[in-house]
């Protein structure tokens, strides 16, 4: 149903919005800034700005260009797709309301791709490393089968209330973008390299680097599940291995930028404690 939007009446409502987009035609090509201008409408968010830019496909000075590429999905901040750097800060573009952005900077809105992931094109980035981290920590409950075996273990409300926020992580990558300890890893495909060889090389490169706050938090989530716990040791091995929890520098940006307000630093500290106990235990059980 289309119901017309509410007529906002801020005094400083512009008729046009200036947008500067950091574009890049593909991996390995140089990025460049491009200026666009779109008509202002009440209730806009960055997605609707980008939709207008796509429909116009014309820059500020009338040059025909290809539409800006970007990624989006649910538009209500639960899928994590549309994460980008807006006016210097990482966030979802769907929940970035234009009126608010203009309050901060009436001159223009600045859009950039995330800087910690390889750019695919324009604002689209390749976040496969983020998902690979979830494999590294084996973020799942190792059930026996999917046959009907009755209900799962009873879970105290307190545990559910601790775990639910962690399981709201939508893998958007904000925490990684803002983390000063998480550095970009870009593996460039060799000419003629097969998919398998390229994937293997990427995997190796990812495995050597910081796993990231999101994965640490997921490891804690599954370590506190009655059955998920069965992989506790393996997860702690990963967390104390290369690129594990020790890479955290306690800047705590992750928790500050997380759109879902997931207590990531609490997870990190819990993981720190578990890692301490795990390594002491290992030292004496050897």
């Amino acid at each position: 149903m289309i119901a017309p939007g509410p007529e906002l009446s801020p005094a400083r409502r512009p008729s046009k919005i200036n947008v500067r987009v950091l574009r890049q035609d593909g991996p390995g090509t140089p990025p460049y800034w491009e200026r666009h201008q779109v008509d202002y409408e009440p209730d806009m968010n960055v997605i609707s700005v980008l939709q207008k830019i796509a429909a116009q496909a014309t820059t500020f000075d009338g040059k025909k260009v290809s539409p800006v590429a970007w990624d989006c999905g649910c538009l209500e901040e639960v899928c994590g797709s549309c994460t980008m750097v807006i006016n210097g800060r990482v966030r979802q573009s769907c929940s970035a309301l234009v009126d608010r952005l203009l309050e901060d900077n009436p001159e223009e809105i600045q859009l950039q791709p995330m800087t910690k992931f390889p750019v695919v094109r324009d604002l689209m980035i390749d976040r496969s490393r983020l998902f690979h981290s979830l494999k590294r920590v084996q973020a799942w409950v190792p059930v026996d089968s999917y046959f009907d075996m009755g209900a799962g273990p009873r879970i105290p409300r307190e545990d559910q209330e601790q775990n639910y926020p962690l399981s709201q992580c939508m893998s958007c990558g904000c925490c990684l973008e803002a983390c000063p300890q998480f550095n970009k890893v870009e593996v460039i495909r060799h000419a003629g390299e097969t998919d398998e060889a390229f994937d293997a090389r990427k995997k190796q490169a990812y495995d050597a680097e910081f796993i990231g706050p999101h994965a640490i938090s997921q490891a804690m989530l599954f370590n506190s599940h009655p059955v998920g716990k069965n992989l506790q040791k393996e997860r702690l091995e990963t967390l104390t291995g290369t690129g594990g929890i020790q890479a955290c520098g306690n800047a705590q940006n992750c928790v500050a930028v997380c759109p879902k307000e997931i207590p990531l630093t609490t997870s990190i500290a819990r993981a720190g404690r578990a890692a301490t106990l795990h390594s002491i235990k290992k030292l004496f059980d050897r």
Partner: peptide, 22 residues
């Protein structure tokens, strides 16, 4: 070596704990 493994981003994220990191 640790300090060089990270890159401060204080310019864009001016949180207290990030200042402390820096």
């Amino acid at each position: 070596w640790i300090a060089r493994s990270g890159q401060s981003n204080l310019r864009n994220y001016r949180f207290t704990s990030n200042k402390r990191y820096w």
